[in-house]
Computed example of a mutant assay.
Amino acid sequence: MKDYQGYLIDLDGTMYRGNEVIDEAPAFIQELNKRNIDYLFLTNNSSKTQAQVSEKLNQLGIESNQDNVFTTSMATAKYIKQHYPNGRCYCIGEVGLFDAIEREGLTVIDDSDCDVVVMGIDRNISYEKLAKASLAVRNGAAFISTNSDNALPTERGLMPGNGALTSVVSVSTGVEPQFIGKPETIIVEQALEVLGTTQKNTILVGDNYNTDIKAGINSGIDTLMVFTGVTPFEAYESLPVKPTYFIRDLSEWFK
């Protein structure tokens, strides 16, 4: 095993499931700190702000500050700022998405007469919200979604993710969105810039083959797969492209 200068670490299914900590996670982060290895928590969950994610981690006994949290909402807002700096955004999502959009100085409107439709997880989704988004996309608005996760690991089990919600607008309009989160390279490229490491000396840690591991593969960085979340251990043999490393849980990594 090579030494890595930076770790990109998934949250849901890797550090915790819903509001329950994964037992091996706190010690894993403590070991990174002990070895002075830089890391960034990289999450596809767009619902919380950077500060809220950090607070949750600390409450679960996982050492964190908001500077080592990078969310798909933050990556989405940066992408929109770069490509549609003056665009008026109609947003479906929760506080994490709205906070990130506003921090980038973008304009948010509650109207289908917009330039950009932005979708993130919304546990208060309604037909009217989906209708406005669909009308806007049909009228030519750019269609951007924070992530394509169809399922979200929670203490209750796998719940509908943002990809499932986004599919309603996509199926209705026939327009595929630009996804920003894992497995896309956009969020990984931004995260590497924030972390200050390179592809060669960074590893991505995650539980979901179709998002976390594929993000590493697509971005040309090494991957460490754990089986504490979405992808079961029994699926390993059938994975088309194997992760660089795999372990059942994080307690095995530094042994």
Rank of each mutant, 00 (worst) to 15 (best):
D38S: 14
V241C: 00
Y7K: 01
N218A: 12
C89T: 09
G163A: 10
E20R: 06
F233H: 08
Q66N: 08
P183D: 08
T146N: 07
F179R: 10
G93K: 07
F28K: 09
L204R: 03
V117R: 02
T76C: 11
K132Y: 12
K34M: 08
F227S: 01
A215C: 15
I187F: 09
V241Y: 00
S46Q: 07
G161K: 02
N45R: 06
L192D: 07
N139Y: 07
P153D: 06
V69H: 04
A131R: 12
Q66L: 06
T228N: 05
K34D: 14
F143T: 04
E184I: 02
T198F: 05
G93A: 11
I186C: 07
L42K: 05
E189F: 09
Q5K: 10
D222A: 10
V230A: 04
Y39K: 03
P177G: 10
V175A: 05
E155R: 02
K255L: 11
A235H: 15
L60Q: 01
T244H: 14
L130T: 03
A191L: 06
S170K: 11
Y79F: 12
Q50C: 14
F233L: 11
E237P: 13
T71E: 02
G13E: 08
M15F: 01
G18V: 00
K48C: 02
S47F: 01
